[in-house]
């Protein structure tokens, strides 16, 4: 095993996205981009496989303005990062993202293992990993909860609704990991400083062997709205009241509603 690629998405921190009460539009002002949480587990698995095999670990990402992601990604263990920016990727769907990532993987040449995580926190579509495998013609192992290197093969557990399925597969392969596959350690100061010395390379569509069609989405967004919440959000703890007072109000209310 010589080359491992790990895909990650540079997404807005959804915890800081607010909803405009009147228009029900999303307000992104306070939200900063970050490495998709699930992909941090993918990066951590990449590090484990790199240590077990001595392979080179390459982080790859695509989007609109992904250069700032490289430093963060590199602090999590890859030897280098390739990023591809294209304005059209602002509207990227799973089809476009997987086509671009497939082009990037192909252009790296002889990648043995491609790691993805199950989903991203924005679309939650769970499509890119399996799509990528299909496009590359690699077997895909999805929903992986444990992975180990055994000679030139990978032995993995998949967590499915009916239980666990254990599989063995030889490279090349696309591995799509679930968040419980391993911990994603927070990078140390040393790793953060070390990241500055590692290469972050820009790639463009041509470099990935792709034409402009690859970035065209197949799904066109018509609207994005936050659903209305109809709940009253009654604060039971009035000014100057004790917790016991608030609890008494709660008990009374729940009893009236037949819930206690």
């Amino acid at each position: 095993m010589k080359k491992i690629a790990v895909c990650y998405k540079w997404v807005l921190n959804d915890g800081d996205i607010r909803v405009n009460d009147k228009t029900r539009d999303l307000d992104f002002e306070k939200s900063k981009p970050q490495i998709n949480e699930y992909d941090r587990n993918g990066l951590a698995v990449g590090v484990q496989l790199k240590e077990a095999s001595g392979a080179e670990l390459i982080g790859i990402t695509c989007g609109v303005d992904t250069e700032p992601s490289a430093k963060d990604a590199l602090s999590r263990g890859p030897d280098m990062v390739y990023y591809l920016n294209d304005p059209a990727l602002a509207q990227a769907d799973s089809a476009a993202s997987s086509k671009v990532l497939a082009g990037m993987v192909r252009s790296l040449g002889d990648v043995d293992v491609v790691l993805c995580s199950e989903c991203s926190s924005d679309d939650f579509a769970q499509q890119v990993g399996p799509r990528l495998g299909a496009l590359l013609g690699y077997p895909v192992i999805s929903y992986v909860s444990a992975v180990k290197l055994e000679g030139d093969a990978l032995v993995m557990d998949r967590k499915l609704e009916e239980g666990t399925e254990s599989v063995k597969v030889k490279a090349p392969v696309v591995v799509v990991v679930s968040p419980d596959v391993c911990e994603a350690p927070i990078p140390s100061v040393k790793q953060i400083l070390g990241a500055k010395k590692k290469p972050a390379n820009a790639m463009d569509l041509a470099g990935a062997g792709l034409g402009p069609d690859a970035v065209k989405p197949m799904v066109t967004v018509q609207s994005v709205k936050a659903p209305l919440t109809s709940r009253k959000a009654v604060n039971l703890l009035g000014d100057g009241e004790s917790v016991a007072d608030a609890v008494a109000k709660l008990v009374k209310q729940l009893s009236t509603d037949g819930l206690l």
């Binding site: 769907d93 799973s94 089809a95 997987s98 679309d123 939650f124 579509a125 769970q126 499509q127 890119v128 990993g129 399996p130 799509r131 990528l132 495998g133 299909a134 496009l135 895909v140 999805s142 929903y143 998949r158 967590k159 499915l160 609704e161 197949m218 799904v219």
Partner: peptide, 22 residues
């Protein structure tokens, strides 16, 4: 279900087709 999500995404890629999740 997980297996069907996997099949859906792979079929979509091989058919070069759009796919909605959930």
């Amino acid at each position: 279900s997980r297996r069907c999500r996997d099949v859906a995404a792979r079929m979509a890629a091989l058919l070069d087709a759009p796919c909605f999740s959930d």
